[in-house]
Amino acid sequence: MIPAAFEYHRPDTIDGAIKIISEHGDEARVIAGGHSLIPMMKLRMADLSHLVDLQEISELKGIILECQSVTIGAMTTQHELITHEELAKVAPIINEAALQIADPQVRYMGTIGGNVANGDPGNDMPGLMQCLDADYILVGPNGTRTVKARDFYEAAYFTAREEEEILTSITFNSPVGGYAYEKQKRKIGDYATAAAGVLITKEGGKCTHASIALTNLADTPIYCEEAVAILTGSDLSADVVEAATVAAVNASDPGEDNRGPIEFKKHAAKIVIRRAIERAIERA
């Protein structure tokens, strides 16, 4: 389990990192926490000859809370997300989801930037970021651009990020109302068999805003437009919840793997989605 040889770089600015990446093209790859990349390098599934370590770049760290919005630096670890008390108040769904990722050791190293940039359908943050309608900030040799989380994922391990771009931060409006991130996994530290993030806002008995996104139920995370349309404006009755749950399951497209056949995954998805919607309503 020893990866192929590479040259190691540890730049201390974003510009410095981009310069190295531009110089070496697809031979270069950035490493954040390494807890997805190193396993892939051990299996020789990731091919690179220049490894650009982002750990020294202070511009990529930190959590900024403004009155209406949250900005999280790409190199913020899951452990830092979980232990940030103010963030837990402003966006408790982040805390609920991050606590269900991997195990303590992995969470000390794994970063939010690596989790969303990786493109593995098993990662939990991409679905969560689609639920929050987050924006990803990408910086490359030609400047800065913003891509919505809902437009970022193209296929497993294929994203809208160009090879020479670095994802520097993630930003979203502070969520209001009820929330839930529900995940079914075989054991602690496992990726989801099925997971769902839900946000619901209620006013005078009516749902004024809803969002639902799924994890590991297709090649990419899925934002469930139809289910959201069913919930929005409704009275959130049991029938509405059932209809929205079915619509979300229908939006999924899981494949068969070691977590089970398609039918089982859809069964698990239905339970997880319903629980997430119900818990979000309770908290709304």
């Binding site: 190691y8 540890r10 390494g34 807890h35 190193i38 490894l51 750990q55 452990h79 050791q105 190293m109």
Partner: peptide, 14 residues
């Protein structure tokens, strides 16, 4: 931090 040292490169630990 508690870290799994089989998932850290020597270079990262410098």
């Amino acid at each position: 931090k508690s870290v799994k040292s089989c998932t850290v490169f020597a270079a990262q630990a410098n």
